[in-house]
Each structure stands twice: as C-alpha cells, then as structure tokens.
Simulated scan of single mutants.
Amino acid sequence: MLLTAHHQDDQAETVLLQLLRGSGVAGLSGMDRANQAADLLGDDALWMGRPLLDISRDSLEAWAQQHQLLHVEDESNADPRYARNALRHHVMPLIATDFPGFQQRFVRTAQHMQSAQRLLIELAEQDLSACLVDHCIDVAKLAGFSRDRVDNLLRYWFGSRGVRMPSTAWLNEMRAQLFEAKEDAQLCVTHADCEIHRYRQKVFMTPRIDPAALPQAAQAFVWAGESSLYFPAFGGTLHIEPAEEGMSAAWLAAQSLCLDVRRGGEVLKLAANRPTRSLKAHYQAGDVPPWERVRLPIVFADKQLIYAAGIGMDCHAFAPAKGDRLQFRWVFDHENG
C-alpha cells in the first residue's frame, strides 16, 4: 500500500473541477480512499491509500509546523495554467469567503456520490447479467428497461470491456439506432475503440476493423506435417488436427495450398447427403455476423475450395477409405487465451 497526503481541500478541488467539466456521478465521487495504482505506477498489486481526506490543509500544515517537518513545494503548484491550480489560487479562496467550511460539504457530497455510484454499478451488473447472451446483449430484454437504466448498463458494459466512456451525445445516438432501426438492419456504430453492431436482435461489441488491414492477396503455402501454421497477415493460426473423417495426410502434403478471404461466388459442400451452397448461405445458416465474414479465411487446394473458417470442410476433400484423417481449424490471435 502506498500512502499519499491528499486531504480535504484536494477532495473539494476534485469535486469542483469535475462539476465544472460536467462529469456524472462517477466524476463527482472525487478521490477514493483507496484504489489500485496500476494506471499510475503499472503495478496491479500496488494500492494507493489516502487516509487524510477528512483533514483540512490548514490542520495538516499546523501539525507539520508543530513537529518541525520540512517539505519541498513543487513549483508547478503555483502555475495557474493547470486547471486545478487555477481553482486552488483564484476560485476556492473566493468561495471560502462567502461559504466558509464548504470543503467539508464537498467532501460529504463526494461520499454521497461514491455511495450512489456503487449502487449504479450494482444495478448495472444485475441488468447486464439479465441481458447478456453469449457475450452480446439481447435487444428485446434491453428494451424493457427505462432510458436511464439502459444508459447505465451500456456505460458499465463499456467500462467492463476496457473501452473509453462515450460522450452523452454519442450514447444517445447509439441508443436511438439500437431501438429505432428496422429489425433486419445491419447496424454498425463506430466508437474510437470499437464498433457496436446490431444483428438479429443482439448487440455486439467488436474491435474496429480497418479495411486497409484486411489481406489484399492470397497466400500460397504447403503442408509438411505441421500441427499448425501461423499466418500473420490474416491474424491467426490454421490448425491441422486428427479427425474421424477428413483429408489423408499424403493427399494434403501433395497439394498446392492457398489461404485467402472470401471474394464472392465461392461454394462449399459439407457432406455427401447435403447440398452444395454458397458461403453466404452457410454463414447465414450458421448465424455468422456479416462483420466476421470479411475476415474469416478460406483454403484452396489448387482451385478447389476445401475449407472455410466458421463453416467447415468441403466433403470433396475427404479421403474415401478409413485411416488417419485430418481437418482444418482456424483460430484468430484475439481468441487465444
């Protein structure tokens, strides 16, 4: 635990600064008595404690003088170009003239806001749990909440995923599109850190996809018995695994293979007793969202499509006789671990 000398006046400055910036309940909660110092010092095991938040600056200075403690003043503390210093030197003395003891009231306000924030987090956890389906949010369940509860849930969802908190205007726009767009619309709202999609009445949060970062050309390769092959340009690994039915090792090793992304018009037959269908039809049947389809790689042997990630193997590549058989499996980098 790292102890710091933040005091009552610092807490009052924090609350006033957040109030002027238009912060919500979380901002008006001021400084916590203790919290992880990972963001500041990069150590998850280190906590920062502020045991002096209820004590005024004057009381601390008097105690320091009584015990003849020496201190060093940071010269930047006098620079009014910093917002906190402008409040400390120009604004707070004027407030203290007409409202003596306002610091204590600001500290109590921060304590009330901390309590309110804890309740909002508790409610958001319950609401998100009720709406969450396979890491995405059920729009029908979300629509049953009031606007304030929806916003509280979405803000908590963003925070829990490590995404920067959206502005009120952005949140209003996203909420409107989630509920007002046509049911079959493939909605995408772009955030600085992610993309928000609505697909089949579910809300997904996905990493932002830069079209320029998608593979622009196919990559030829051969298989020489490896259990996996890494393709950095495609952002993942192709695993070659034993299976009850699949390709023979000898046949696979003799092929000129190629990894690519879907260009349009490709077809695949999953089994002898199933019809040949387009990849689009397979993706729709498998409930694969459109934004994932553009990144999922496919494998050709010469010009024959033999595998599509997110769908499976083409049965034409299966060996007719029994024996050791192999199938492909694709895993993106972000799915590991």
Rank of each mutant, 00 (worst) to 15 (best):
G236P: 05
V222Y: 02
Q255L: 04
A253M: 04
S227L: 12
A254P: 05
S227M: 12
A224C: 08
R277P: 06
F234V: 09
F221S: 11
L238I: 12
A243S: 14
E226Q: 15
A249M: 03
Q255T: 01
L268E: 07
P232Y: 04
L257G: 01
W251K: 02
G225P: 07
G265P: 09
G235H: 10
A272D: 13
A254Q: 14
S256A: 12
G225W: 04
G264H: 10
E245S: 11
R274V: 07
P242H: 00
G236S: 06
L270R: 15
G235W: 07
S228H: 13
W251F: 06
G225A: 06
C258S: 14
N273A: 12
G264W: 13
F231C: 06
G225E: 01
P232D: 06
E245C: 04
E245I: 11
L229N: 13
N273P: 06
L252C: 06
E226W: 07
I240T: 12
L270H: 13
C258W: 06
A272N: 11
A243G: 08
R274P: 05
T276Y: 04
S248W: 00
L259R: 07
L257S: 01
P275Y: 02
E266L: 09
A253E: 10
A224F: 11
L268Q: 08
L229F: 08
I240E: 12
N273V: 07
M247F: 09
E226A: 10
G264Q: 08
R263A: 14
C258G: 01
L270K: 15
L259S: 05
P242A: 08
V222M: 08
G235F: 08
Q255F: 02
R277T: 08
F231T: 06
L257R: 01
D260F: 04
T237C: 11
F221Y: 11
A233C: 05
A253R: 12
L238P: 13
G246F: 09
L238E: 11
K269C: 14
A243L: 03
G235T: 05
S227R: 15
L229S: 15
D260Q: 12
F231Y: 13
S228V: 02
W251A: 09
S248K: 00
A243F: 05
P275G: 03
A243D: 11
F234D: 02
E244T: 10
A272F: 00
T276D: 12
A271K: 11
M247D: 02
K269L: 07
G235Q: 05
R274S: 11
F231S: 08
R277Y: 11
V222A: 14
A243W: 02
G264A: 09
E226Y: 07
G225H: 04
H239T: 11
V222T: 15
P232M: 05
V267D: 12
A253S: 10
W251S: 03
R277H: 13
